[in-house]
Design a protein around this nucleic acid. Structure first.
Lengths: 121, 121
DNA sequence: AGACAATATTACTATATAATCATAAAGTAT
DNA sequence: ATACTTTATGATTATATAGTAATATTGTCT
């Protein structure tokens, strides 16, 4: 049962409290800048924690913990090789969601820019 | 510039810290069960705060504050009529995002169910 | 075994925010 | 003006979590 659609073909979704918690929990995973940066750093393929450290410039313990959150949410997968841990994106939904939001933000920026132009004129 | 796509046609997005904060902030708005319930309650059209109170069964002050968050995020719009305030969905992106996540959660539930069946057999 | 490297975990602090109560603000009606 | 309704806004408390430092764990190498 899809959650919500604007087209009216699907009925209004009736969700349990647990379902709302689950969905909100999923969004909460994406609601951290560092986690988004980690996902973005994994865009082209798997990376070790060390590589992610240099890319993000963040604290090692912090990166490990955020990776754990992403792992438990099923958004990334881990592959161990020696002492290294390779992380990779496990669910392409993140790209779709982020792109949608980015486009939306872009629209907002353009709206604000046009408002600024109108105010200036 | 779209944020991320899995198809490789767009280059790896380079985002500023502010952009990550913005995107994370947007997801944070959706990362609350009550806000999702409010959006879902607005699925078929505009509702007053009072109606939203009865639908959600939540505290009045709490609902007002969550509506404010949704309003400032541009996800809902407000129309005042007398002492009533009518809220309505302003950005259909929420339906798309929620549906995607719901479908994903559904997949997870089915995966867990199948694992349960395998374990039981 | 001991030294070293990579990653994970624990303990702690600081900050953000959801929930609630009380109250304010704005509109309507008598 | 007063009473009432609807909604918004403090003020407060409780809880969750991001960041950090220290330590543990795991694997490799000599």
């Amino acid at each position: 049962m899809g959650c919500m659609t604007p087209d009216g073909r699907k009925p209004r979704p009736v969700l349990t409290d647990a379902a709302y918690d689950q969905i909100a929990g999923f969004f909460k995973v994406l609601a951290e800048p560092l986690r988004l940066r980690l996902l973005n750093a994994l865009y082209e393929g798997e990376r070790t924690v060390n590589q992610l450290l240099t890319v993000t410039g963040a604290n090692q313990a912090n990166v490990s913990k955020h990776l754990k959150v992403l792992l438990e949410a099923g958004l990334v997968a881990r592959r161990k090789e020696g002492t290294n841990a390779y992380y990779m994106v496990a669910d392409p939904i993140v790209f779709m969601l982020c792109e949608s939001v980015c486009d939306r933000q872009q629209v907002f920026l353009e709206m604000r820019a046009s408002m600024f132009r109108e105010n200036a004129s």
